[in-house]
C-alpha cells in the first residue's frame, strides 16, 4: 500500500465512524453542533497522531535494543504501555484546551478525558501503529483522524441544522423556525448515524 492510499482509506473506505463503527460513543454525544464536532475531531486527531507516532517509535526502539525473545516478552506489557501513552496525550489536550479554549472545553466537558477510552485510538495503536513503520503510522493516524472529524461534522451539520436551525452558530431560518428538538437529543444522533450508514450501504450496493 502506498502512503497516499493509507491516508485516503481512513476518510472513506475505512472511515472509523461509518465503516468500522468505532468510537460511536463520543460521536453520539458531541455531534450536537458543528463547533463541538470540529473541537472533538481536532482533539481526537491530535491524540491519534501523537500516540501513533510515539507507539510506532517505541516498538521500533525495542526492536533495535532487544533480542527476539525480549521483543516477545514486551508484547505482554504492550496494552499498559499504549494506555499510558494515550492517557498522557489526552491529559495534555485537556489541560491545553481548558487553558486556551475555555468555552470549547466546557461544552465538550467529560468527553475530552474520555478520549482515553475511545476505541479508535487504542484500535489504531494496537492494530496499526504497533505493526507498521513510523511514516505509515502517521499517515494512518492523519487519515483516521480526519475521517473521524469529517464524519462528526457530517452528523453534526445535519443535527444542528434541524435541531437548532443553525449552522456553525449562525441562525439560518429566522425567528419563526421551531427547532426539531429530537435531533439534538440522543435519539437524533442514532437516527442520523443510521441514515448515513443506510445511504453509504445503498451507494455500495448500487456500485456492484
Amino acid at each position: 500500500m502506498t502512503l497516499v492510499a493509507e491516508f485516503i482509506k481512513g476518510i472513506y473506505k475505512e472511515n472509523p465512524v461509518f465503516r468500522l463503527a468505532l468510537g460511536l460513543c463520543p460521536v453520539l454525544a458531541v455531534s450536537t453542533s458543528i463547533s463541538n464536532a470540529i473541537g472533538m475531531g481536532a482533539a481526537t486527531t491530535f491524540v491519534l497522531l501523537s500516540s501513533n507516532t510515539i507507539i510506532s517509535l517505541l516498538i521500533l526502539f525495542f526492536s533495535k535494543i532487544l533480542s527476539e525473545e525480549g521483543q516477545k516478552s514486551i508484547n505482554k506489557i504492550r496494552i499498559p504501555m499504549f494506555i499510558v501513552v494515550i492517557a498522557s496525550f489526552v491529559t495534555i489536550v485537556e489541560m491545553v484546551m481548558s487553558a486556551y479554549f475555555p468555552a470549547l472545553s466546557e461544552s465538550l466537558g467529560i468527553f475530552i478525558p474520555l478520549i482515553v477510552v475511545n476505541c479508535i485510538i487504542l484500535g489504531r495503536a494496537e492494530g496499526f501503529a504497533s505493526k507498521n513503520s513510523l511514516v505509515f503510522s502517521v499517515m494512518d493516524a492523519l487519515g483516521m483522524g480526519i475521517g473521524f472529524t469529517l464524519a462528526l461534522i457530517a452528523i453534526a451539520a445535519f443535527r444542528e441544522l434541524l435541531g437548532s436551525g443553525q449552522l456553525l452558530g449562525v441562525n439560518l431560518f429566522g425567528g419563526d423556525y421551531k427547532p426539531v428538538l429530537l435531533m439534538i437529543l440522543p435519539p437524533g444522533a442514532f437516527l442520523v448515524i443510521g441514515l448515513y450508514l443506510g445511504i453509504l450501504h445503498w451507494l455500495d450496493a448500487r456500485k456492484k
Partner: peptide, 22 residues
C-alpha cells in the same frame, strides 16, 4: 523485572512531561 523497569521508565517520562505542561 525487565518488563517492570521498562514500564516504570515509560510512566516516568509521561509523568515528567505532564508535570511540565501542568
Amino acid at each position: 523485572i525487565r518488563l517492570s523497569i521498562i514500564l516504570a521508565f515509560i510512566t516516568l517520562i509521561a509523568a515528567f512531561v505532564l508535570a511540565e505542561i501542568y
